[in-house]
């Protein structure tokens, strides 16, 4: 199946035109080259070489780099860790009988993950926090269970003495 873009010629790359007059505005990164557009983020003048067209938005390489490293530009984000899935998996797995003994470690770990990563960006396609809520509730239940068992144990020991 072929789309119309298949027959579109690719635009040739440009290296930037040199400035001819002293009063011509030049590129922030290449002072000898003519500025063609300002950066939409920082406002620096850019030549054709430095201008990056991100679907209608003109940006300079440093703004793109900053946006990518700080995760502010969604278009440049290529990876996310699903902390909500990790928390939920951890809280569910510990109900399996052989792993039940790990509950005293996994329940606090689940709570830590939920609280620490509550504000982190979730999956872009299903950005709801129900997994965090479910993991939190389960971890609280697990901690309550540990508390109950500990209380019963203390009472038993007290009665025995």
């Amino acid at each position: 199946m072929v789309f119309p873009a298949f027959f579109r010629e690719m635009a040739p790359g440009t290296s930037g035109e040199k400035t001819l007059f002293d009063d011509e505005s030049s590129c922030f990164y290449h002072p000898t080259k003519k500025a063609v557009v300002p950066c939409d983020i920082c406002g620096r003048f850019l030549c054709a070489l430095c201008d990056v067209d991100m679907h209608g938005q003109h940006m300079c390489p440093s703004c793109i780099d900053a946006g990518k490293t700080k995760g502010k530009m969604e278009q440049l984000e290529v990876e996310r860790t699903r902390w909500d899935v990790i928390a939920l998996t951890l809280s569910i797995l510990t109900w399996i009988p052989p792993l039940l003994y790990l509950i005293m470690f996994t329940a606090p770990a689940t709570l830590f993950i939920v609280i620490r990563h509550w504000n982190t960006t979730l999956s872009p396609v299903r950005p709801n926090r129900w997994r965090f809520v479910a993991a939190f509730l389960m971890a609280v239940c697990q901690l309550a269970l540990i508390g109950l068992i500990a209380t019963m144990f203390v009472m038993e020991v007290g009665a025995y003495e």
């Binding site: 290529v78 990876e79 860790t81 902390w83 899935v85």
Partner: peptide, 9 residues
């Protein structure tokens, strides 16, 4: 637990 994204305009 990792998601990797590719966007095709």
């Amino acid at each position: 637990f990792k998601e990797r994204y590719k966007r095709f305009y």
